[in-house]
């Protein structure tokens, strides 16, 4: 598993949220968190708890009403997404469907696609890194779902940004493929030296990928800690309810459909 532990107070802080608040319709969000450089953090919680909103705030798709967001010590609150130093992988549609894989990655290196020889080499290297050598001229539609996510990871690899945000990226790939993708993601994180935040609803995925968990409910982080033993905790009723372990002390991380208290 990962070497990341919660005892990281001596390491540089990669991401910090200080009193970040946002009102979205009737639900209010409030986030305080701090993650060290190189850590991998799973973000979990029932649907509507604010997992994606948290990522959207960090990425800059949403602007907080109050509070500060610092990436590598820089307040990015007023910066557009492109200048915050991050890459992001979504569950789907990471690649523009009408552009080939190499162009999709190239757009991540130079928006005007005036690629230097070095950048072209970077694209080839990134494709090779994720096992897609020779796929550069293919259109996303001709690739399998797993291959498309690999291509998205290749773009993140080529861009070498300090922060990597993953929004349920391996959902719908099946457990075996998801495990492979997580291993690949962890390798890329190590190569790049990135800090990873990953939204997931699968405790197994979280245990494979992350060293730390943030558990959200109703727009707040109500529990967090090292992954080891986190899913065995019984002191957080929402967590037990989410995992489906509130009535019977069954094995932790048992996969059951999560209850959703919010629509």
């Amino acid at each position: 598993m990962t070497a990341v532990s919660s005892a990281t107070s001596d390491r540089a802080v990669a991401l910090q949220l200080e009193g970040v608040q946002l009102q979205l319709g009737t639900s209010s969000m409030h986030f305080d968190l701090s993650r060290p450089t190189g850590s991998v953090t799973a973000i979990m919680g029932p649907s509507g708890s604010g997992k994606s909103t948290l990522l959207n705030l960090i990425a800059g798709f949403l602007t907080a009403d109050a509070g500060r967001i610092l990436i590598e010590g820089i307040d990015v609150g007023h910066l557009p997404p492109a200048r915050r130093g991050l890459s992001m992988v979504f569950q789907d549609n990471n690649l523009f469907a009408h552009l080939d894989i190499a162009t999709n990655i190239g757009l991540g290196l130079d928006p005007h696609l005036k690629l230097t020889a070095d950048q072209k080499k970077t694209i080839e290297a990134a494709l090779e890194r994720v096992g897609l050598q020779g796929f550069g001229r293919r259109l996303p539609g001709t690739l399998s779902g797993g291959e498309r996510q690999r291509a998205a990871l290749a773009r993140a690899f080529a861009r070498r940004q300090p922060l990597l945000l993953l929004d349920e990226p391996f959902d719908g790939l099946g457990p075996g493929l998801a495990a492979d993708m997580i291993a690949l993601m962890l390798e890329i994180r190590r190569d790049v030296g990135a800090t990873v935040l990953m939204v997931t609803h699968d405790p197994d995925e979280a245990k494979m990928a992350a060293g730390h968990v943030l558990f959200l409910s109703k727009g707040r982080i109500i529990a967090e800690g090292a992954i080891d033993g986190f899913f065995e905790r019984r002191d957080v009723p929402e967590l037990a309810r989410y995992l489906g372990t509130d009535s019977s002390p069954a094995t932790a991380a048992q996969k059951r459909p999560p209850t959703s208290p919010l629509p």
Binding site: A59, F61, P81, A82, S87, M88, F90, D92, N94, F96
Partner: peptide, 23 residues
Amino acid sequence: LPQEYWKNAAILGLGQWTTFRHV
């Protein structure tokens, strides 16, 4: 178009002209 396209355009910093041409 899927919402992710606009998010990607934002993160990759495509700018108005590139977004028009490629998206």
